[in-house]
Design a protein around this nucleic acid. Structure first.
Lengths: 341, 341
DNA sequence: CTGAAAGCGCTAACAT
DNA sequence: ATGTTAGCGCTTTCAG
């Protein structure tokens, strides 16, 4: 079969311990010996077996990452941040797609734990008690990204969703709108609810009455949002502005209005959420709440490495700043760029 | 520490071999014994150690997937196909991003091999001899997707890139265009070159002279393509149609023309490549060469499972059919839907 | 149907 | 600086 550390040892006339030392960069090896071993390794094409290594050392240098949807631009960008930092710290990543299905999430966590990952980075719409139990049953650190557990016990990296939604709504209010539609995500989900709350709060603070008929819930996707928009367009009092909690939905909002003969931003203003690349790839370009996606990924992975290396962590609950990226789907008057925390 | 198979065995009053059998669904266990063991497993919260299992069995039920860019919609969709089939066959996936960097690709392959993956699914712009050597040094099966090695020795799943580009160019030619711009990807890459060849061939077959100044190379991305488009717009004889080899670039082409005061498709026709969701999320919607992305992923993973299970493979070189999705960026006259192979 | 025992390839004390 | 020796937790013959 393939060449093992033992073969190298024999061939180099040393013990396997010595080979192990040179492979692992242990300095306690005489340069001459190291050279000889290295040469044999090269000649034999020896490739250390990470599985055996993992069993013996109880470390796999692998972390599990659970992502709701890898085909979503938002999470893909997050994944890049995660990956870059993981590589920087010499960790490999097992990336798993959960499709936001709680059952699949749980299975995935279980599987990753069986694989003895050194840490877990979890993204999901909700963190339930079942999740918490599983996490606790593991002896590895867990970090949440773009989500948070009800008790805030687990370390997590987020933006202030509520405030971000508040700021977006505020921008529209500042432009004089009173019929601002909210095209949001499921209220059972952490982000969905927080953003809805931010929207309501902004209305309330501005003394603008909240209206049930100005709220539609979709799944963050273009196609679904397009359908929901039909509702707004049939309203006797059509909304004059739309706050969509994803960029795809915002683009759908724009198209729905355009198809009905309205101009954006002249007749209707639209603001999105996330600031994925799509926001710059449509006309008009999209004004949107910019989440530092890459950074959220990077920071959460960095946080995880700290836990894995038993470093001291001062802030286990991280909130990254958001901004509002003003583009073409809102009118130019205001140049408000709001940043929080 | 955590509970092992040995703890379960002791607690259940059986040998670890028996526990192993029930965990692995071996039928040679008396139902009563199985029940007892299962109960102890449940009670102790036993979780099999996949690393130990992998060392003992020499199987990790894990496959390595190397992807050029997970943040690209095209590859993300492919990844979904890969994942779904992998799950179906009980394999986990280690997803790695190579950023199209040959050096990173090689390191990644090496790392995955060290982790003892049961198979490798490789996507990359080029398969060099170095790649081939590494693959050969491994004792695990390798399947290529959306790429092919020069000697066609490795199994692979693709569409007929050349023919697809030919068909796209043909559509434009059929509409009477003689100045068709080609906005393509790097010619050093397999897909980039094939598509360029298809474009040239179509021109030649139609007796339309090829012109150097109608070719621009970009990196498939919107931003870059936008810059390249500037060239076409300054030409004394502007192209009247654009064949862009990615949807992002096609959208850039549309915007470039629109910004210059032209209408699409009335003044200029544009056709893209891939048929990612973006193609339906812009106005006008994008006519494009549709690649069965999900299927390419799914089929390549299925192929890999066959190799991993030592099943007989009749077709190691798979070409999936492509179509042309007619939408709003080309004129309606022709309803040509071309399918090949 | 079940148990005993020998590894899988490597790390990590512990000696020397 | 290097070698010896136990395991790591599990699968897998081989007996019985």
């Amino acid at each position: 079969m393939s060449v093992t550390i033992y073969d190298v040892a024999r061939e180099a006339g040393v013990s396997m311990a010595t080979v192990s030392r040179v492979v692992n960069g242990n300095p306690n090896v005489k340069p001459a010996t190291r050279k000889k071993v290295l040469e044999v390794i090269e000649r034999l094409g020896y490739r250390p077996n990470a599985v055996a290594r993992g069993l013996a050392s109880k470390k796999t240098t692998t972390v599990g990452v659970i992502i709701p949807d890898i085909a979503s631009a938002f999470y893909a960008e997050l994944a890049r941040g995660i990956e870059d930092i993981a590589n920087m710290y010499k960790y490999n990543i097992i990336l798993c797609n959960s499709d936001k299905q709680p059952k699949k999430e749980l299975t995935l966590i279980e599987t990753l734990l069986e694989k003895q990952v050194d840490g877990l980075l979890f993204m999901g719409p909700r963190v339930t008690d079942e999740h918490l139990d599983l996490f606790r049953s593991a002896s590895v650190p867990v970090v949440l990204a773009t989500t948070i557990d009800p008790g805030c016990q687990l370390p997590s990296v987020n933006i202030d969703q509520r405030q971000a939604a508040y700021d977006a709504t505020r921008l529209l209010l500042n432009h004089g709108h009173t019929r601002i539609a909210f095209l949001g995500g499921p209220l059972e989900e952490f982000a969905g609810l927080s953003r809805f709350q931010g929207y309501r709060q902004a209305l309330e603070d501005a003394g603008v009455p909240f209206r049930e008929e100005l709220v539609q819930i979709a799944d963050y996707r273009y196609e679904t949002a397009l359908k929901r928009m039909a509702h707004f367009l049939t309203l006797p009092e059509r909304p004059t502005a739309v706050f969509a909690t994803s960029d795809e939905m915002a683009v759908a909002a724009i198209h729905a209005y355009q198809d009905a003969g309205f101009r954006v931003p002249e007749d209707v203003e639209v603001i999105g959420f996330d600031n994925i690349r799509l926001a710059s790839m449509v006309r008009p370009t999209l004004t949107t709440v910019a989440q530092p996606m890459y950074d959220i990924g990077a920071v959460s992975m960095r946080l995880l490495t700290k836990y894995m290396h038993n470093e001291k962590v001062t802030d286990s609950l991280v909130f990254l700043p958001h901004t509002i990226e003003i583009r073409g789907s809102t009118r130019a008057e205001s140049k408000t760029a709001v940043a929080t925390r």
